[in-house]
Simulated assay, not measured.
Amino acid sequence: MVAGLDLSGRITAQPLTAARFAAFGDVLEVAGAPDKLINQGLCGRHHDRATLDFGPEGRAGISLFDAEPRALPLRLDMVERHPEGSQAFIPMGGDPFLVVVAPDDAGRPGRPEAFLTAPGQAVNYHRNTWHGVLTPLHAPGLFAVVDRIGSTPNLEEHWFDTPYEVVAP
């Protein structure tokens, strides 16, 4: 087995950690002491936790997504990427969700990896990172999404010839 993928095309979802996810983006979570205390000392600010990138012709936008929950095992037949900007998914509930990413291999996705978030975690995909679609595992699938708003194309999809199967650990 290689990084959660066995030779049959089955991907075992791993717990999401900043170290495991660093090549693909940022894990957003409250961990450790806050960078500073604000609001009369009643609020810890964990400052500047994501590398947001909206390209030269884009701007930041916040959208709300309402996604249908899915279940594991999951058939993974497509990934996408956004060449013009980063994309952050911030759950508006406390439930974990599935994160799928793949390294770039000469303009195509390499072997996918899958992660399960812990409650309170969010992700920010770096610009041009291959990733699966939003995959909540519980209702409601409400997310705030911070991504690029602009007039140039910013979506590329790749459909796998042979789908993968993502399974729980």
Score class of each variant (00 low, 15 high):
83 P>V: 03
110 G>N: 03
79 V>T: 10
136 P>A: 11
120 G>R: 00
71 A>L: 12
81 R>T: 07
153 P>R: 11
29 E>R: 05
165 E>Y: 00
52 L>R: 10
136 P>V: 12
19 A>P: 11
155 L>I: 08
35 D>C: 08
8 S>F: 12
58 G>V: 09
87 Q>Y: 06
9 G>R: 03
80 E>G: 07
104 D>A: 13
114 A>Q: 11
124 N>I: 05
33 A>Q: 14
118 A>S: 14
1 M>D: 09
141 G>A: 08
100 V>S: 01
70 R>V: 10
49 R>M: 11
52 L>P: 04
162 T>R: 12
123 V>W: 05
104 D>W: 09
7 L>G: 13
96 P>M: 02
6 D>S: 11
50 A>I: 01
120 G>E: 01
108 R>Y: 05
77 D>R: 13
108 R>T: 15
78 M>C: 14
35 D>G: 15
69 P>G: 05
152 T>L: 14
55 G>Y: 09
161 D>E: 15
79 V>G: 04
10 R>T: 15
92 M>K: 10
138 H>R: 14
57 E>S: 14
25 G>D: 04
161 D>H: 04
14 Q>K: 12
85 G>Y: 03
116 L>Q: 13
51 T>K: 14
17 T>Y: 11
70 R>M: 06
50 A>R: 09
33 A>W: 05
98 L>W: 05
119 P>V: 06
107 G>H: 04
56 P>S: 12
68 E>S: 12
100 V>Y: 05
130 W>M: 09
111 R>P: 14
117 T>P: 10
134 L>G: 06
119 P>D: 03
19 A>E: 15
158 H>C: 03
123 V>A: 11
44 G>D: 00
70 R>K: 15
5 L>V: 14
103 P>W: 06
92 M>P: 10
133 V>Q: 08
19 A>C: 08
10 R>D: 13
157 E>H: 15
55 G>V: 09
137 L>V: 00
98 L>F: 05
155 L>E: 13
124 N>D: 09
79 V>H: 06
46 H>P: 00
71 A>Q: 15
167 V>R: 14
66 D>G: 00
49 R>S: 02
92 M>W: 05
45 R>T: 00
48 D>M: 03
51 T>P: 00
89 F>R: 08
142 L>Y: 10
114 A>L: 10
151 S>T: 08
162 T>S: 12
129 T>K: 00
31 A>M: 08
68 E>P: 01
141 G>F: 04
159 W>F: 12
27 V>S: 01
31 A>H: 12
62 I>S: 03
107 G>V: 04
131 H>M: 02
151 S>Y: 02
148 R>C: 01
90 I>W: 01
73 P>C: 09
26 D>L: 04
67 A>G: 01
35 D>N: 15
5 L>I: 13
88 A>T: 11
82 H>F: 03
4 G>Q: 02
141 G>C: 07
154 N>R: 01
96 P>N: 01
16 L>R: 02
162 T>W: 01
19 A>M: 09
42 L>K: 14
88 A>N: 06
74 L>H: 14
15 P>Y: 00
37 L>P: 01
40 Q>I: 06
94 G>K: 02
